[in-house]
Design a protein around this nucleic acid. Structure first.
Lengths: 225, 225
DNA sequence: CGCCTCATTGAATTTCGTCAAATGTGGTGG
DNA sequence: CCACCACATTTGACGAAATTCAATGAGGCG
């Protein structure tokens, strides 16, 4: 919590969203730009040495931390276009898994180090990604610290809807357990809350309850805060 | 939640801790390098235009977000040496107040913009500060999402102890309400938990209950997780 | 000295978690 | 193609933790 990471090259868990990261050149040589992961496959684990950071091409990734007794907190889901895996130190503080079959582009951590010495737009992009990650973290702290179960689920669905950009149909690639560990709830509470939102006519659950149609967007927004 | 802040110059709420930010040159001209704030005085408000970012010289600062009904989440307390006030967009997403009488050094937001174009060590420092802020945010999300009241208070005290560096005596410059809004609890729960820790012989409360002596550090660490 | 704020303490309530069971779904193999 | 199995999700009953409501106590300031 207070290591002298100083001016070390670095990079934390973050996501870029609509930030233009297209100019990031994949490192083709040593890393193999593209890497595929199957559903539930580990991308890296807490404690691993930091070598790469990643951009999601397709699929979905969760980054998380664990307590010694197994409690898990998923700090974020990373969808296509998002950057994650930036880390301050040389060692992973979070783990990352593919939620479903996923394709990533890997960048060498050193590309990041070189950044600050260049006039590159790359630096701008990565910095922007970091700042966006921090904004999301702030939003999520508000959610975890001050919102009710219903508000948490509503916020989550709204955030997914915005990110996916899909008007109407929201895909839920992750399990109820993943959602619960993201929202600071139990799977039962997530399930109950979704059921209740459905009964209230705010949403409709479809396709084995793995996707959601928002039927009353204003109501959903009102539930959020 | 998804504005195209793109490559805009930017800066989020963060703290630097032990990161060497000494080289930051205070902007003496327009901003007046040093600024003093009284206890409870507002430094900036949500929605304000972003002009400066700050380093704490003395005192303590809280940065927070509000929900429309008044619920508040304090995302961090900033102590001497910490940098805060970096923001992604041009508008404040968080508010900031002095908790007690406080002295800050103000830097122009533009200094940050210039950063990425230079080979400056300044860039390194600010990037390091951002990454540290993200690490703290991750720790705090774990706390808010998965820890009990007792664990939250224990974590909080431990974090304060580490940051202050004062072995033994921990000053609590902030009110119970501030602590509660940081830990996602009510003031009553904070108070009850402190009292219980005291009864258990883990800590001793002193000086109008505004400072704490850790009497059983191992026990406190065990409570944390 | 008395007011005002902050902190503590107590009792009742609520929300969410825990434990348990039923339902549903997909996959596997006969 | 169908039966069975493993697992995820839902639902229900109950319990625990934290909040809410309310009152008391302790200092600081005028």
């Amino acid at each position: 919590m207070q290591l002298a990471l100083a001016t070390a090259g670095l990079v934390p868990a973050l996501n870029a969203g609509p930030v233009p990261v297209a100019r990031l050149r994949p490192d083709g040589a040593e890393t193999g730009a593209r890497r595929r992961f199957e559903a539930e496959e580990e991308i890296y684990a807490e404690g691993d040495r930091v070598i790469h950071f990643y951009k999601v091409v397709s699929g979905a990734v969760r980054t998380y931390r664990l307590l010694s007794d197994g409690r898990r907190q998923i700090d974020g889901f990373h969808l296509p276009g998002d950057i994650f895996g930036l880390e301050a130190g040389t060692e992973r503080r979070t783990g990352a898994d593919a939620v479903i079959d996923t394709t990533l582009t890997a960048y060498r951590r050193n590309d990041r180090d070189a950044l600050t010495d260049e006039v590159g737009a790359l630096a701008q992009e990565v910095v922007a990604a970091m700042l966006r990650a921090l904004e999301r973290a702030q939003d999520h702290m508000m959610l975890l610290g001050r919102k009710s179960a219903k508000e948490r689920v509503a916020s989550f669905l709204l955030a997914l809807a915005e990110r996916a950009g899909t008007e109407g149909l929201i895909a839920l690639p992750m399990s109820r357990a993943d959602i619960a560990d993201h929202l600071g709830l139990t799977i039962e509470s997530v399930s109950r809350t979704l059921t209740q939102l459905e009964r209230d006519g705010v949403i409709a659950l479809q396709a084995q309850r793995r996707s959601v149609v928002v039927q009353d967007m204003p109501a959903l927004r009102r539930l959020d805060g």
